[in-house]
């Protein structure tokens, strides 16, 4: 089934595709946190009884987040092609994939961050407030540092999700391992490529999860 030796070019293809996937996922993860992290913080702090309580705003924001999250990624991808073209000038290729990947991940990240921050005991927030802390100090000195292990795991989950999404983006020309698997594995019936892709993806996901777990454990251990 595997016929590597005869196809040295294949190794090249896989390496390039792997790099494209890593590149695309890393940038999308980063960008989705740039927006998603503040959104998550806002979702928590504007909720009822919290430091920046604003029920109406919280409801509206929550609904938008839910709406985007409820669109299946493969549909979302096609739906926002005009926007992608507007931003990067094309809808094909690695760079173009970053747009839908990031936009789809933002609400996901926001909810993950929200969950992590909600786990923080309210007593800690109250203690900070009783010392005269303002909202920003509560966020930066209490919520985020206390939630750090959990936030780290969230990054791992997001990255892994984006690896999966990136493969979907690959099918509509997004580049990376998805494109490779689709063109060679599906359209040309080259099962070898298909399997290599799968193996590389499995390894990638394992690595990310391990990294996330190790980091979270390291932070938690230091505090133990």
């Amino acid at each position: 089934m595997f016929d590597f030796g005869a196809n040295a070019w294949m190794v090249d293809k896989v390496l390039i595709a792997t790099w494209e996937t890593i590149y695309m996922v890393a940038i999308s993860t980063f960008l989705s946190y740039v927006v998603g992290l503040p959104l998550g913080i806002i979702l928590v702090t504007t909720s009822e009884g919290h430091i920046l309580e604003n029920k109406r705003f919280n409801q509206v924001l929550g609904s938008i987040v839910n709406a985007v999250r409820s669109i299946p990624f493969i549909i979302f991808l096609i739906l926002i092609i005009p926007l992608t073209r507007l931003i990067v000038g094309t809808s094909i290729g690695t760079i173009a994939s970053i747009v839908p990947l990031t936009l789809a991940a933002i609400p996901f990240v926001a909810r993950l961050v929200e969950t992590s921050l909600k786990e923080i005991e309210w007593g800690l927030v109250e203690a900070a407030l009783s010392m005269g802390a303002n909202a920003w100090q509560v966020i930066s000195k209490v919520l985020l540092p206390e939630a750090m292990p959990s936030l780290n795991l969230g990054v791992a989950i997001t990255t892994i999700n984006l690896v999966g999404y990136s493969a979907m983006a690959g099918i509509v020309g997004g580049g990376g391992l998805g494109t490779l698997a689709y063109y060679y594995g599906y359209q040309r019936y080259e099962n070898g490529i298909m399997w290599i892709t799968v193996i590389v993806l499995v390894v990638l996901v394992q690595l990310v999860q391990m990294l996330g777990d190790t980091l979270a454990a390291k932070i938690s251990n230091r505090r133990r």
Binding site: E121, G123, L124, E126, A127, S130, M131, K141, V142, P145, E146, M148, R223
Partner: peptide
Amino acid sequence: MIFQHFNLLSSR
């Protein structure tokens, strides 16, 4: 203010 459950920051 001091509290029943101390409310110390575990990160510090």
